[in-house]
Design a protein around this nucleic acid. Sequence first.
DNA 1: GCCTTGTGGTGACTAAGTCACCGACAACCC
DNA 2: GGGTTGTCGGTGACTTAGTCACCACAAGGC
Lengths: 225, 225
Amino acid sequence: MSEAGNNLDWISRFEELGALPAADRSFIESHARVVQLGPEKKVFAPGMKPDAFLLLLDGKVRVQQVGAGGREIILYRVSGGESCIMTTACLLSDEEYLAEGITETDVTAVALVRSDFDHLIAHSPAFRRLVFNKYASRITRLMALVEDVAFQRIDTRLARKLLELSRGDGVIDITHHALAVELGTAREVISRQIKRFMAEGLINTSRGHIEITDRERLENFAHQA
Amino acid sequence: MSEAGNNLDWISRFEELGALPAADRSFIESHARVVQLGPEKKVFAPGMKPDAFLLLLDGKVRVQQVGAGGREIILYRVSGGESCIMTTACLLSDEEYLAEGITETDVTAVALVRSDFDHLIAHSPAFRRLVFNKYASRITRLMALVEDVAFQRIDTRLARKLLELSRGDGVIDITHHALAVELGTAREVISRQIKRFMAEGLINTSRGHIEITDRERLENFAHQA
DNA sequence: GCCTTGTGGTGACTAAGTCACCGACAACCC
DNA sequence: GGGTTGTCGGTGACTTAGTCACCACAAGGC
């Protein structure tokens, strides 16, 4: 974890921070630490307790859970401009992390130690809004995830995930294993489903690579039921 | 929804409210509405938006999601002394309810309209703590639920649920269908698992009734993996 | 008595997950 | 180049979970 200088102009890049009153902005500027991390680094792990509030400026962090049998599932991702609710939740309720957070890209974040976080929450309505708006909408997303896992067929879930991950050109670079982790299932299940999609002519695949060839029919799978 | 007088002494019954500074307490007393509801009433449903913050004084509300195929799963319960995060989340982020809330007993609650809620959040650190502590710990519970649904076998999950629901005497009055809703699975799956537990001598059952006869071995099922 | 509703039991089937293994291929070292 | 190693993906055989259709029985209303 390397530290960068404190006098970058990150605060203006971060739109919602830019909207804060001048007093809050200068409080943050003088108290926050800017932190940088490479890709595939662990930000936190189960059993740890957060010591600082984190605001992502740039990059992406995935938060995933590891089950008993070693299977994993991705709960959500935090990207530039957002804070991690897991961290906020644990800070607020003084609990341990249950999941792990892993950087997926180079990441730049702002860290505020607990006492500074408490001070801002207490004194800045704008900062409170910034923290709790995202926080709240993440809860509804988590509930939607429960429904997804409990009730949706995996062909539906895989089709959705492929569409979500595909860039405009319908190309995805990902392994079957990584897709299994996205959905919290087993690699073989993904492999077989991918084979079926390919037999149907919906996609083309090669090692570590998937190409959507019939987006329309794939969307039919995604939106069924 | 019937209204009771505003001058009950509910505020002292609610320990965490009792800890609030006098100014906050009197603000709540003068602005809050006390609401009473019978059992099995819908408090909110998917698509609605909350218009007031709710603090449960007495009773129990279950929050559950209905999936596409009509299957249901219970996300969590709110009981006396707690606020409903779903409501708080939707208030804070201006979103619609995704799940439904149903009273399980007679319920007494305190309702604070949005503007009064905002005022307290802004001006009372103690009220903020009260709201967000529970809020935060509920998030970690939701994540644990995701793991449970995604990775645990249903014999494990059922054993756990039976132990959780059993009173001290190991007696539970519940139908197979209701158990299926608790776990987000199908009634037949529960019926068969119950049959296996009975064949193993772990429980005794009759219509709408389950009795744990070998708690120790049932706990082995619950704690496996 | 009959009829309706709620409850749970069951067989036959499909879907999903597990286990064990294997082959293809890429990366790396020598 | 050849050899080793690790990742990636394919597959058969099996178990577990969920679905579908139907039936039997109990409780309560009429």
